[in-house]
Design a protein around this nucleic acid. Structure first.
Lengths: 207, 207
DNA sequence: TTCCTCCCTGTACTTTGGTACAATTGTTTT
DNA sequence: AAAACAATTGTACCAAAGTACAGGGAGGAA
C-alpha cells in the first residue's frame, strides 16, 4: 500500500492529484511534512510559484528528512531546464502538475518501483546527450598512443589548465610539461593546445 | 494483463525470467516472434553471445514488427556501453539477465508504465552527462551579451583558429581580433582562449 | 651489456597571446 | 546635440606557448 504526500504551495491546484490519490495527504510546509508519521513511499513536490532556484533546495531538505524516499516534482510550467535541475538533485520524476489522474498514477507506479519518469521529449534529449558522450569512447586511435604521463598532461590541458598549472598538478617542471606537450602534438598530428582541446572534446573526454 | 515475450538465443539461461513471468513465452528467432498473436505488452531481448553490434539491429527489427512495443534488453555481461547502445535505439530498459524474479517484475512494471529502467550507476552517469550539457544553459548571459562581431570572433576561436587566422577569416587586423577577444574575456569573466573554448563547448555549441 | 622508451630537466630563442593606453569613425540612444 | 556603444587600428610591452638542442636516470627488451 503506497502512501502519498504532496508538499504544495498551491493546494487549490491539486484537484487532479487528489483524484489520483484520494488517500494521499497534502501539506503546505516542510515542518508539516517532517511531522508525518507512517511509511511514506512517495513525496510529491509542487512548487508552483517558487523561483526555480529554490526547488532544488526544498528537494534536498526533503531528502534530508527522508533519505530513502523517492521524490516527484510537479511543475505547472514544465521546462527541460527545470526538469534537469530537479533530477540532478535526486528527483525520480518530473511531470506536469495538471496531468491526468491516470498519468499521475502511472508516474507513481514507475517511480515507486525504482524507475525514472521524465517526459519523452526530455528523454530523447538526455539519451542523445548521453550517446554523444559515451559513444565516441570506443574509437580513439589518438589517446591510446600516448604514454600514461602524456595522457595526464593532455587531460589537464583539456580542462583548460596552463602549462604552469599542469606542472603544479603533476608536480613537475613547466619545462617537462612542454616536453610532453610537444610529444603529444607530434603523435596526434596537431599544432597546439587549442587543437588538442578540440581533439579531446571530439573524442569523448568524459570524466 | 501483461503478456511477455522473450527473444533469446540461450533459453536455458532464462530460469529467473520464467519464474518472474510463468505465463510468458520464449521464442528463439525473429520470425517466431513475428508470428506471435495477441496483445504483447513487453518484448524482452536476451542476446547472450551475439556481438554487441547486432543487438541494436535486432532491436530495430523488433521495433519494425511492433512499432509501439516496449523493449527491455537482458544482458549476461552488462556494460554501460552496451546499455547506451540499446537505449539509443529505443530500448526502454536494460538489466542483468540473471536478476532476481522480483527485480525483473519490477522492471516490467516500470517499463510497461512508460518508465525507463537503467541501473543506478548508469543513471548517475547519464544524469551527470545530461547535467553538464543542459545545466550551463541557465546561467548564460554569456554569448547573448556579445556583440555580433564578438560572437563571430568567439566562434572562430572556438573552432581552434589563431588570432591570425581569425583576422584573415573576418578580413580585419590581428590587432582588432585581440580587441574583440579582450572584450569577450571581460564580458564572460574568463582569462584566455582556452577558457573560452571550455565555455563554448559547455554552452551547447552542439548540433 | 646494449638499445630503446619513458620521464625528467636545463638554456635559449621565436612566435603567439593578452593587456595598457590611445585614437578614429559611424550608429544608436537619450 | 551629447552620450553611449560598436567596430576598427596603432604602438608598445609582458606573459605564455612552443621549438631547438642537449643531457641524465630508470627500467625493460634484445
Amino acid at each position: 500500500m503506497n502512501t502519498h504526500i504532496c508538499l504544495s504551495d498551491r493546494p487549490e491546484h491539486l484537484n487532479r492529484w487528489r483524484q489520483a490519490f484520494p488517500t494521499g495527504t497534502v501539506v503546505a510546509t516542510l515542518s508539516a511534512l517532517s511531522r508525518t508519521t507512517g511509511a511514506t513511499t512517495l513525496v510529491w513536490l509542487h512548487a508552483e510559484n517558487l523561483p526555480q532556484a529554490h526547488i532544488d533546495e526544498t528537494l534536498l531538505e526533503v531528502r534530508e528528512l527522508f533519505p530513502d524516499i523517492r521524490i516527484v516534482v510537479l511543475s505547472s510550467t514544465p521546462s527541460q531546464k527545470e526538469a534537469l535541475l530537479a533530477l540532478n538533485v535526486g528527483a525520480s520524476g518530473y511531470c506536469h502538475a495538471q496531468s491526468t489522474p491516470q498519468m499521475l498514477q502511472q508516474v507513481a507506479t514507475v517511480v515507486s518501483n525504482g524507475g525514472l519518469w521524465i517526459g519523452p521529449q526530455l528523454m530523447t534529449r538526455v539519451m542523445a546527450a548521453a550517446g554523444r558522450i559515451f559513444a565516441p569512447e570506443p574509437d580513439h586511435p589518438g589517446l591510446k598512443q600516448l604514454t600514461p604521463r602524456e595522457n595526464e598532461v593532455a587531460l589537464a590541458v583539456g580542462r583548460g589548465a596552463s602549462n604552469r598549472e599542469v606542472a603544479e598538478q603533476l608536480d613537475i617542471t613547466e619545462r617537462t610539461v612542454k616536453a610532453h606537450l610537444g610529444a603529444i602534438f607530434e603523435k596526434l598530428g596537431i599544432r597546439d593546445r587549442l587543437q588538442l582541446m578540440l581533439f579531446l572534446s571530439r573524442s569523448g573526454s568524459s570524466s
